[in-house]
Design a protein around this nucleic acid. Structure first.
Lengths: 345, 345
DNA sequence: TCTCAGAATGAACACGCTTTCATTCATCGT
DNA sequence: ACGATGAATGAAAGCGTGTTCATTCTGAGA
């Protein structure tokens, strides 16, 4: 009877609970709905019987009639990346606290997968969708899913034509200027003059925005424009391209990386392969402030994207939109700031 | 009309597609079921109309009648950890390729959450459940969920009473002896004699098993029993406790860490805080072989748990069990092997 | 031309639940 | 003691699908 392989495979239903407790099936439903009107003693009895029968309301059946699936779809390009996984962790925890389960999907870099994936996901009727994958455009999201209102993560610092960032979407605006200004100022203060920007994946809006802002701030301070090193957010690429830059190209004073992992690759390239010292010979700053950035081997000075702040802002957007599906578009704003450690001076 | 906020919020149903295409609703259902008997031209027409109407079958409704939710529940203690996120990434990708969506849950270290979480998850009717969280016992899993057969991740190397590892569960057996033997042999070969074992969370079966096996192998080779350093799989703890061991306790020749992240903490403690060289003064070996282990700052020699192999084995278990729910318990086996890098000699 | 097997078709039912809605019960003020 | 008010109750309808099952259609063989 306790053998999980051969035991009763059928779930208990509300009917069974009703029969066992000698109440109507409607009463069982009410017992599990906090706002329903039912006598307390009756509810207690039903809940007790339900527990004995190992009964749980079927979310699929429930969602069909309520229209709420209690599912939030999350689309991530690479779950195993430190930043992505830390963001996913924070978001899942926050959602769970609000009673939502996370429906997780992973995109490949292959853009062609998008439509198929979104269509498939739509079948599960998620109450909301968060697409961290930058190859999923908000317009596509809006077209395929008809229930959820997409959240557009924008970078309003810049004047770049905000192509698809109409007021049709809810927005999370990330203010990157402050953190970048602090970083450039700090590096310049320690004598850096010749900068390189270690870019991320070239189709990433985040890296594009960061590069523009870095160039702007550097120009404002009367420094020569930074050299671009093309990376893809990955350690190995950052390592290799940094070596190439110093061996085949022009050496620099300072490297501003589009993300922390890239900064790690650059640091290791400088120290291991090029025999240079960080920060004495070359200053390095990253972006994100992932857990690993405070590890002593790197001890990275970096522009922090506050994960808790960001997660709570996203959550507010989702909850407000769910509460009032027809309200005009919402906006939340988060900022950035420099975390000073040991890779500048 | 393209405004996602005010546009039609109601999904298209099979009925609407049927009306538009002038076919019966049953035909629509068949058009989306590959094995159904329907005239090809008719199917094409329906699929075309469906696409125009942006129709997708509702998985909730579908799962009610088929009994298959196409959902696999995954429970993880800390998504942001490198090993956990890499395992989650591999598993989600593999599941997605088989047509399953991942239903993600995160446990706190607080054990009391377990039942509640499992009960909640059960409501979504997952076709299968993978609990990477070691505080979720298979027996609890079997009791709460009535459809899924739990998979027990065991370590049959050891003689330890395998408390709840009855043949009632499907099993993934991890053979740890080989990798550990290679590691100890290598360290001994480079002159190590006095070992420490840097443990993980004390309630983790994996760390317990690894410690027993490490002790056994060390004893077999005629070396003195290792000193235990109590960690919790985290960098900061490993760093602090390693410093304490060398400052307040007895220094050692070699550190065998229960996971890679712990090994990083130990290495940084040795180099940064204690002024010792790795591997010249102290040899270090880790466990897992996460992506970060090949980063040049660590370049860690470690016992590899092959993620692809492990994921495929788990997937085979799940698919076979789904195909034949009443078959006797299944077992898959994966092994470990040493990856030699630069922290031993 | 006729027969018959197999493919194609659609009406009806079932899945497990929530929500109206009309009805009954308990409670209270006078 | 008596309506009146609100809480508690259960029958029935409906959510969007897949699956019988009985029927009709198709085409090949005689």
């Amino acid at each position: 009877m306790s053998d999980p392989v051969t035991r009763n495979r059928s779930r208990a239903t509300a009917d069974m609970v009703a029969r066992t407790a000698n109440v109507s099936r409607v009463a069982v439903s009410r017992a599990f709905n906090p706002h329903a009107s039912i006598k307390p003693e009756k509810r207690d009895l039903i809940l007790k019987v339900a527990q004995e029968l190992n009964y749980t309301p079927d979310m699929a059946a429930r969602s069909m009639v309520t229209g709420r699936s209690h599912l939030v779809g999350i689309i991530v390009p690479d779950i195993s990346g430190p930043w992505e996984s830390q963001e996913l962790d924070a978001m899942t925890t926050a959602l769970q606290a609000e009673g939502f389960a996370t429906l997780l999907f992973r995109t490949r870099d292959d853009l062609s997968l998008d439509e198929t994936l979104l269509t498939y996901m739509k079948g599960f009727n998620p109450d909301s969708v968060i697409a961290y994958a930058e190859n999923v455009r908000p317009t596509t999201l809006a077209r395929v899913l008809d229930r959820a209102v997409p959240i557009y993560i924008g970078y309003p610092d810049e004047e770049a034509a905000e192509e698809e960032a109409a007021p049709l979407f809810d927005r999370l605006d990330v203010l990157q200027r402050e953190g970048i200004e602090q970083a450039v100022a700090l590096m310049q203060g320690y004598g850096a003059r010749r900068f390189a920007f270690l870019a991320g994946k070239s189709n990433s809006l985040a890296t594009q925005s960061r590069e523009r802002m870095v160039r702007k701030v550097i120009a404002e301070r009367g420094l020569p424009p930074p050299i671009r090193i093309q990376g893809d957010y990955m350690y190995d690429t950052a390592y290799r391209e940094t070596v190439n830059q110093f061996r085949l190209g022009e050496p620099v004073d300072a490297i501003f990386a589009a993300n922390d992992v890239g900064a790690f690759g650059a640091i290791d390239a400088l120290r291991t392969e090029l025999g240079l010292r960080v920060p004495q010979d070359v200053k390095v700053v990253g972006f994100d402030d992932i857990h690993q950035s405070h590890w002593k081997s790197y001890n990275l000075t970096t522009v922090k994207l506050d994960l808790a702040e960001r997660t709570q802002a996203l959550l507010r957007l989702i909850l407000r939109r769910l509460k009032n599906p027809t309200s005009p578009s919402l906006t939340e704003t988060v900022s950035t700031r420099l975390v000073v450690r040991g890779t500048v001076g």
